[in-house]
């Protein structure tokens, strides 16, 4: 039983609470920023993506290596 507890306790639950409280506003801000950046990329991604996705994926063939 004691050993079982060790496994549980050493997960990061302790720091979880601290991190959550301390950085709630910072993390909301950050996740909004991340979302805006992702949306920007999704808006323009079709211009960047290889023209024919199916052909590009099919033609990407490598010899095996290490």
């Amino acid at each position: 039983m004691a050993e079982r507890e060790t496994v549980r306790k050493t997960s990061t639950s302790r720091s979880t609470e601290t991190v959550e409280e301390e950085s709630k506003s910072a993390s909301t801000e950050k996740s909004e920023k991340l979302k805006a950046e992702l949306d920007d990329l999704l808006d323009e991604i079709d211009e960047v993506l290889e023209d024919n996705a199916e052909e590009f994926v099919r033609n990407y063939v490598q010899k095996g290596g290490q």
Partner: peptide
Amino acid sequence: PHLAAIDLQFHDIRRGKSLFYRL
């Protein structure tokens, strides 16, 4: 196939083409 293409192109090392660098 678009998702597979995004997966591959994430690793393209050309800065303009690489989806990793675009992120």
